[in-house]
Design a binder for these strands. Structure first.
Lengths: 347, 347
DNA sequence: TTTCAACACGAAAACGTTTGCGCGACCCTT
DNA sequence: AAGGGTCGCGCAAACGTTTTCGTGTTGAAA
C-alpha cells in the first residue's frame, strides 16, 4: 500500500533538493559524481519511475493516441487496432480505445472527453449514425484546437485531415470485372444502405463494372440490407427469387449468409452459384466452402494510420505544413473455394 | 491552431483571479451571481473544458483503467473489451488497451509504463509466455503499490486479487457428460499444451468426465496442439488415424479445423462424427455446419471484471478490505448443427 | 591577499487545476 | 461612532515534474 515514491521523498530522505535529485537521475553534468551515484542508487533501490501524469502536464504531451471505432467485435477493426498498437508502441505511444457503438452521441462524448488533454491525437472510423447525419462538428472542433486526426476506412470528404482508405470502388470494380471475364452473366449484389460510405463506394464499383462491360443493370439483382442482424431471410429469398450465377457481397457476413441461404434452397457453392465477399476475415477463412474475398489488410491500414499521426505529432512544432494526405491501401483478391473457374485476376 | 483555453486565460481576460474563475464554474456560493454568470458565459463562449491531465495530477486519479490482453484479433477478447468498455463508460472511466502479443516482456513493459500514474487499475488476462514462465513479479509489484488488479480468463492462483473466470473444468465435464449420455463412445479431445491454464482445466474436465463414467482414457484420443497456426495437418491426421465418433475441441479454431479435416477425409459432420467446440464466437456461428459449442459470455465477463475493479477503486479510501473475490461466469451449451442426437443438456 | 572562474547545488517558475483561508469592504446593530 | 458580521474575492499551497537562473563555496591565478 506504499504509494510510488516521488522526487520529493527522495530529496527529503537524502537531504538534498528536488532539483538535485531530478538532475542526478537525468545524468546532468551539474551534479557531482558522488551525489549523482548516491541518488541513482537510492532511486533504483526504491524503484523510482517518473510520474507520467506530471510529465504529461509539464510537456503538454501525453504520448497517447486515441482510437475511436464503431465496434470492436469485428475482425477488421480488431486487426486495424492491432496494426495501430504495434507501430504506436514502437514509438513509445500508448493507445486508448473508445467504441462509438455506431452511435453519433457516443462518438461525440468520447471525443470531447479525450480532447481535454488526455491524448495527443485521434485515429478514427466514423459511426454509421455520424455518416448518416453528416454532422462532423465534433471532429472539426478537435482539429481546430490543433489536435491531429487521422481517419480510416469510413471517412468523409467533408473533413480535411489525413486519411487512409482502400479504393473501395476500384476493388469492387475489379472483382466484378473478374467475374465477367470468367463468363458470369447474372451477377447479383448484396450491399448496405447508401449512407455507409464503403457500402456506397463498393456498390458504385459494381455498377461501373457492369456499365463498362455493357451489361444491363438489373435493380432486382441488387439487395440493400438495412438491418444487418436479420439479413438471413431477405438474402435467402433474394437468391431464390433471382437465381443469380454469381453474388458479390460487400462484406463477409453477407457473403457467408448468402452461401448458407443458397445451400438451403438446394444450390451448391460454387457449382451452381459463385460468391465473392469483401474483407478477408475469420469467417471467409473458416467457412465451408471458404470464401473468395477482396482482402483489405487491417494491420497495414492501422499501421499506416498510426505512422501518419505520429509523424504529424512529432513534426508539428517545426514545420507547420497543412498538407493533408490520403493513403490508399492496396487490395487483392484472395481466391478460395466459393468461386468457380475464376482465372487469375489482374490485381 | 488556438490551444484550448485555460482558467488562467479566462482570469486574465476577465480581470479576476484564477480561483474566482474556478469557483464560478463550480457554482461556488462564495462568488456573487454577477461574476459567476459573467464567467460562466465567457467560459461557455470559449468552450472551456478543464484539462484532464491537470485534474488527474491533482486528484491522483486518472479515471482510466487499462486492459492487458494477449491479443485482440480474437473474438472472445474483443467481446470482453466490449463488456469492460460499456460499464467503464457508464461510470465515467476511459479504457486503455495494451496487447501483450502473448509475450512476457511486452506484458511487463506495458504494465510498468502504465503503472506510473497513467491509470487507476488493471484488468488483464495472462499471456501464454507469462503462464509458462510463471513469473508474476510485475503484477505483484503493481498490486503492492496499491493499484487494484482484476484478472480474467487466464488467471493464476499465485496472485491474490479479484478474478473472474468460467468454470472451465466443469464446463468441459458437462459437455463430455452430455456426449456420453447421448451414446458416444469414442470421444476425442483436441486441446492445447498444458501451461495454458484454460486448456489445462478443460482437459481435466474431459478426463474427469470419462473417469466418472468409467470410460477408459485413451491417450491416443488426446491431441495437444502447440503451434496454433499450423494445426490443420495434425488435426486431420489425428482424426483419420483414430476415427472418433465425437470430438471435443477446447476452442473454436480447433473445432472448425476438425470439421474441415473430417470432411476432407470423407467424414460427414454430424452424421459420422460430432464436434463440440468451446467459445461461442463468429466461427461457430457461421461455419457450415454451424458448431455446437460451450458458450462463455465475454461481454458479461468483461462487465463483471470492470464492476469489480471500479468498486474497489471507489471504495478504496474508506474501507480497506483486503478480501478478494473470484466470480464464476455461467456457461451453457449452444446446440447447433455439428452434433447429432444431442439431448437437451442439464446445464 | 584579492579576484575570478569553476563547481555543486538550491530556489523558483511553469504546466492547469482545486480549495482552505485570509482580508478588505460594506452594512447593520448598539 | 465603534464594533461585529457577512459578502466577495484573491493568495497560496498542493499534485510531480523539468529547467533556468542564481548563489555560495572552493581553488587557483595574479
Amino acid at each position: 500500500m506504499k504509494r510510488k515514491i516521488t522526487l520529493k521523498q527522495i530529496a527529503k530522505e537524502l537531504d538534498v533538493s528536488i532539483s538535485t535529485v531530478s538532475k542526478s537521475l537525468r545524468d546532468s553534468p551539474e551534479i557531482s559524481e558522488d551525489t549523482r551515484l548516491k541518488v541513482q542508487a537510492f532511486a533504483k533501490l526504491y524503484n523510482y519511475k517518473p510520474n507520467n501524469i506530471a510529465l504529461s502536464l509539464k510537456n503538454r504531451k501525453t504520448k497517447t493516441i486515441a482510437i475511436i471505432i464503431p465496434e470492436i467485435v469485428h475482425h477488421f477493426f480488431a486487426t486495424v487496432i492491432s496494426g495501430i498498437e504495434q507501430v504506436a508502441n514502437e514509438s513509445g505511444y500508448n493507445v486508448i480505445i473508445c467504441l462509438s457503438d455506431e452511435s453519433f452521441d457516443k462518438e461525440v462524448i468520447n471525443m470531447e472527453m479525450l480532447a481535454n488533454g488526455s491524448i495527443d491525437g485521434f485515429i478514427m472510423s466514423l459511426s454509421k449514425e455520424t455518416q448518416n447525419k453528416a454532422d462532423f462538428h465534433h471532429i472539426i472542433e478537435v482539429i481546430n484546437q490543433g489536435m491531429p486526426v487521422v481517419m480510416f476506412d469510413r471517412v468523409t470528404n467533408d473533413i480535411l485531415c489525413d486519411k487512409v482508405i482502400i479504393d473501395d470502388n476500384r476493388a469492387a470494380f475489379d472483382a466484378i470485372q473478374n467475374l465477367i471475364d470468367n463468363g458470369f452473366k447474372k451477377i447479383a449484389l448484396i450491399t448496405t444502405v447508401d449512407y455507409v460510405s464503403v457500402g456506397k463506394l463498393r456498390t458504385e464499383g459494381y455498377l461501373r463494372a457492369l456499365r463498362t462491360n455493357d451489361v444491363n443493370v438489373d435493380e432486382n439483382l441488387i439487395l440493400r440490407i438495412e438491418d444487418i442482424d436479420n439479413c438471413a431471410v431477405p438474402i435467402e429469398k433474394f437468391i431464390a427469387a433471382n437465381k443469380p450465377d454469381a453474388v458479390f457481397a460487400v462484406n463477409e457476413l453477407f457473403a457467408v449468409t448468402a452461401i448458407k441461404g443458397a445451400k438451403k434452397i438446394g444450390l451448391n457453392v460454387p457449382e451452381d452459384i459463385s460468391v465473392i465477399g469483401f474483407t478477408d476475415g475469420i469467417i471467409s477463412k473458416y467457412s465451408s466452402p471458404s470464401i473468395t474475398t477482396v482482402s483489405q489488410d487491417g494491420i497495414e491500414m492501422g499501421g499506416k494510420a498510426a505512422k501518419m499521426l505520429i509523424q504529424r505529432l512529432e513534426s508539428e512544432d517545426e514545420e507547420e505544413e497543412e498538407h493533408y494526405r490520403t493513403e490508399v491501401i492496396e487490395t487483392h483478391l484472395v481466391e478460395r473455394e466459393s468461386t468457380r473457374a475464376l482465372k487469375r485476376g489482374s490485381f
